[in-house]
Simulated scan of single mutants.
Amino acid sequence: MLAIVCPGQGAQKPGFLSPWRELPGVEESLASLSEAGGVDLLRHGTESDADTIRDTAVAQPLLVAAGIIAASSLYQGQDLAPADAIAGHSVGELTAAALSGVLGDEDAMRLVAVRSQAMARAAAAEPTSMAAVVGGSREDVIATIERHGLHAANINSAAQVVAAGSSEQIEALAEDGPAKARVIPLQVAGAFHTPYMAGAREELAAFAPGLQPADPSVPLISNAGGEVVASGARYLDLIVTQVASPVDWEACMGALRDRGVTAMIEVAPAGTLTGLAKRELKGIALANLNTPDDLEAARALVREHAGSAAPDQEN
């Protein structure tokens, strides 16, 4: 069974789209996606520096477009079976919506434009940030996060929880963290996936009814507890609430395990989610699709593993 996964904000790197522009049709696709997303994807993906693409309003459209381009290139001109499951981390769920057929590519870009700008505005309202807590016992980590008045915004794995809240609270957590754990402040200007994003949730709720989602053609696993999304309408409900609710990637990996995943491909910019899978889904085959040079290895994985889900695992 093959899963395709889509990374979230923070995975972007300066120039990471440069190798893809050499493929036929990619520059034209990026131009179309840029128009829908209101961002110059070619410039930001090939020329802009790290500080520029760290901006939420730039990073999120860039990540969704990159995933669409990489996945399209994987299948273009190939007789390959579709993935057996698709999932995305945070903004990666918008990439996943495009790859699973819930949204067209341009609608996914329109949605991420609204999402990213709304989240940037919410983040600018007051100084907030996030920090990764690595190690320690889950019970102690959550208790310490809550003791500091913070929120567990991302449950990334058994060994990693991301805390979010005011900048002062993050500093206090770094000084007084859980036992046997490291607290690593993240370079983000916002407490994403917490009540601080309530304004962004309201903006998305106002925009979403203008979209016409389809039901997923491939099982789409949600950050909301690893739920397998059965309808386009349910997807929109979940993606609206997601901006102010925790991302439970550990549950997503659990859902993939339960479905019998044997291989995972992470679309560009890849490495974060396959890194977590290496520790949490031991023994599965992994491929990072970062450049066109990775396409043949990824296609070999598709040929070997796609379409192998047992009948009672399908929906």
Rank of each mutant, 00 (worst) to 15 (best):
G38S: 05
R54K: 15
S166W: 02
S129V: 06
M197F: 02
V102E: 10
A96C: 08
L30N: 09
V267C: 09
T262N: 13
A70P: 15
I239N: 01
E250S: 14
N156H: 09
A152I: 02
V114K: 11
R234H: 12
D49K: 15
P19S: 10
T144A: 08
V5C: 00
T95D: 05
S18A: 15
A71I: 14
I53T: 00
M109T: 07
L220A: 04
D140L: 06
G275S: 14
D294G: 13
I239T: 12
S217C: 07
E304W: 05
A153G: 03
E146I: 06
S32Q: 15
E27D: 12
A50P: 10
A263Q: 02
A172H: 01
A206K: 15
R21S: 13
P61G: 08
D40G: 11
A108M: 11
A297C: 13
A297H: 14
Q169F: 01
G25L: 11
H193A: 06
A179P: 04
F192I: 04
D140C: 03
Q76A: 15
L41Q: 10
S137G: 12
S166C: 02
A123L: 02
L111T: 04
E106R: 12
G37L: 07
L103M: 12
V64M: 11
L295E: 06
S217A: 14
G10E: 02
G226K: 00
A108W: 01
S100E: 06
H44N: 13
P209Q: 08
A200T: 02
L2T: 09
S308M: 11
R299P: 10
D107T: 08
R234I: 07
R147T: 11
R303M: 12
Q242V: 04
M130T: 05
A298M: 07
